[in-house]
Write a protein that binds this DNA or RNA. Structure first.
Length: 313
DNA sequence: AATCTCGTCAACCGCCCATAA
DNA sequence: GTTATGGGCGGTTGACGAGAT
């Protein structure tokens, strides 16, 4: 692997400038790259990733684009902690299939193989090794090392768990990813002059009434008419994407100047702040006051929407 | 306050397989 | 049959934040 040494990061920081344009970029994705990828896939669809990377104007490998889309940008991704039900399912499936993460992920809608793999390595495996009296868990782990069973014989795994209810332990806090984009959201709101203090414990913000903003962000489905249009011609869509990208770029530049957000944090998580999964629980949704709404991406409808524009102060 | 340690997770790598030319 | 290409998978790395010291 091409390690992200200091020099690599310096090179990364030069991205987009003349002289390094021909190089295949690595490292964290920027908002601009995310938007390019989303825009292209929205219009043209997935697949042919190497071609897609070039056509979208991304200096990334096709693999990298696919990974970014599948693991991070896909609109049907589920956010938030792995629930107790999901954990049980992961344990069961891992006991049956071993490290077949993609296969396991197919049974957990909205979860990626990468997410499950990370969860297993960082949480479950630790639990298994740490709790010597957990016969069930240890059995799962041991079985996983030599799984040869017939998946069809396993009961209770026939369908996705549509209703995900956070367990008591899950209610205790948010995942790091969640926290990251909540923080970023907070910075965006601060930048736009919105009062939205984060609570100290969970860093959740107040939930507002049903708003276009929440729908735009994917917190709520569009049930009635959007403010202006929820269907835009491609030209208009592209223009709005550019406006949106420009807005975010401005915001991140400002943050970088102020040192409010670390550059890597912005690069890695910024898109999450505005690209929310439609499956994101409304109870965890943030309120984006409509009088400060801009051009936002509606992940649910795969469209961009325009709300009342209010330029940053 | 400074430093250390650990947990988390995005992103990468290498390998493999399927398909087309 | 061989080669090139695209894509998927599992394993690994390293940045970063939070808590501990």
């Amino acid at each position: 692997m091409n390690n992200m040494t200091t020099s690599s990061w310096e090179g990364f920081s030069m991205m987009g400038k003349q002289g390094v344009d021909d190089e295949v970029r690595k490292g964290p994705w920027t908002v601009e790259e995310d938007m390019r990828l989303i825009r292209y896939i929205t219009v043209h669809g997935e697949g042919r990733w190497n071609f897609l990377a070039k056509a979208a104007g991304l200096k990334r490998s096709g693999k990298s684009c696919r990974l970014r889309w599948v693991n991070y940008l896909r609109p049907d991704l589920k956010r938030g902690n792995i629930t107790a039900d999901e954990e049980r399912l992961i344990l069961d499936l891992h006991a049956r299939w071993g490290n077949r993460w993609s296969r396991i992920a197919q049974r957990l809608p909205g979860r990626t193989d990468n997410e499950i793999k990370n969860y297993w390595r960082t949480r479950i495996k630790k639990k298994l090794h740490g709790s010597g009296n957990s016969c069930r868990a240890n059995q799962c782990f041991e079985n996983s090392m030599s799984s040869t069973s017939n998946p069809n014989s396993f009961q209770g795994l026939n369908g996705p768990q549509e209703s995900i209810t956070p367990s008591a332990s899950d209610m205790g806090g948010l995942s790091e990813a969640d926290k990251n984009y909540r923080r970023t959201f907070h910075h965006i709101e601060e930048y736009l002059g919105i009062e939205a203090p984060m609570s100290s414990s969970t860093e959740k913000m107040d939930i507002g009434a049903s708003t276009d903003s929440n729908r735009l962000l994917g917190f709520e489905p569009w049930t009635a008419e959007p403010s202006k249009s929820d269907t835009m011609p491609h030209d208009a869509l592209a223009a709005d994407v550019d406006s949106f990208t420009a807005l975010l770029s401005e915001f991140y530049s400002e943050m970088a100047r102020e040192g409010t957000v670390s550059s890597s944090s912005m690069q890695a998580n910024s898109t999450e702040a505005v690209l929310k999964s439609p499956n994101f629980s409304n109870s965890e949704a943030l309120t984006w006051p409509s009088d400060h709404s801009d051009v936002l991406w509606n992940m649910q409808d795969h469209k961009f929407h325009t709300l009342a524009w209010s330029s940053a102060p």
